[in-house]
């Protein structure tokens, strides 16, 4: 079985993240690039399946500019993935969800897969739409936001917890799934893994290699304006001297925040 894991490089959420107000694009230089944690969890699901089913091949797939991404992606190889495919092309600068999904679908088809595993929502775009688009474009079943995953030779199943309901669902392979934070933390790469990662196959593809030529006339989502919200400033701060609770209540009352008062 071949499992493709979608990996995304994002700005570290522990740092300040910035948008270029001219282009609406992420200012990559401003933030430490890291593998999105949720995609590491997706990889963990694939690696655990391979431990149970040793014939499994785990392939990392990522789309993004050259620069830091190959280094970032190598962490996934150090964690244990068998090989990596990096799609990069200058024409992908500012790619919207639709174009990104088309590119990933073309790459997944070229690689071949039984199962694609993605994180449910990235920490930067926060869209949570890409795995669904991918399933549709690939013409396979999809399961979004799984909180548990069972994989066998023919099917993938798991539990979905929404605000209003909880259900178990199952799909025949091939399929695309996305997983939530409820899945286990990813393992840390060990020294042996880091050394081995340097020798693992790392393939770089451009749009031509995928047989894609995005048309100007296709419908795309574009940024038409971007503005920084004024930063919040700290207000009043007191040290409790025995009456802080009363002071907060006064503050709430003055600002009409106590209903029925």
């Amino acid at each position: 079985m071949r499992v493709i894991v979608l990996m995304k490089e994002v700005p570290d959420t522990y740092g300040e993240r910035a948008i270029d107000l001219e282009t609406g694009l992420l200012k990559r230089a401003d933030a430490e690039p890291v593998l999105d944690e949720i995609t590491e969890r997706a990889l963990e699901v694939a690696l655990r399946h391979r431990e149970a089913q040793p014939g499994t091949e785990v392939v990392l797939l990522s789309v993004g500019p050259e620069g830091s991404l190959p280094t970032t992606l190598r962490k996934g190889l150090a964690m244990g993935a068998d090989r990596a495919v990096h799609v990069q092309d200058p024409a992908l600068l500012g790619a919207d969800l639709t174009l990104t999904a088309q590119v990933i679908a073309a790459a997944a088809k070229q690689i071949g897969f039984d199962l694609v595993i993605a994180g449910n929502v990235s920490t930067d775009g926060g869209g949570g739409a890409l795995p669904s688009m991918l399933a549709e474009l690939l013409g396979v079943a999809g399961l979004a936001a799984l909180s548990s995953v069972q994989i066998d030779e023919l099917t993938v199943a798991g539990q979905v917890n929404t605000d209003v309901e909880r259900y178990e669902a199952s799909a025949d392979l091939p399929a695309v799934i996305s997983i939530t934070e409820a899945l286990p933390d990813a393992r840390f790469p060990n020294f042996k893994g880091i050394m081995a990662a340097k020798k693992k196959p790392f393939e770089t593809l451009d749009l031509q290699a995928l047989g894609l030529a995005p048309g100007e006339e296709e419908a795309r989502s574009i940024v038409i304006s971007a503005a920084a919200r004024p930063a919040r400033s700290a207000g009043r701060r007191i040290v409790d001297e025995g009456d802080a609770g009363q002071q907060i209540a006064e503050f709430l009352a003055k600002n009409q925040l106590i209903k029925g008062h």
Binding site: R17, E218, A219, I224, S225, A226, A227, A228, R229
Partner: peptide, 11 residues
């Protein structure tokens, strides 16, 4: 919420 961004469809 640090940024407010507007988007639209090209077509």
């Amino acid at each position: 919420g640090a940024y407010l961004v507007d988007s639209a469809a090209t077509t």
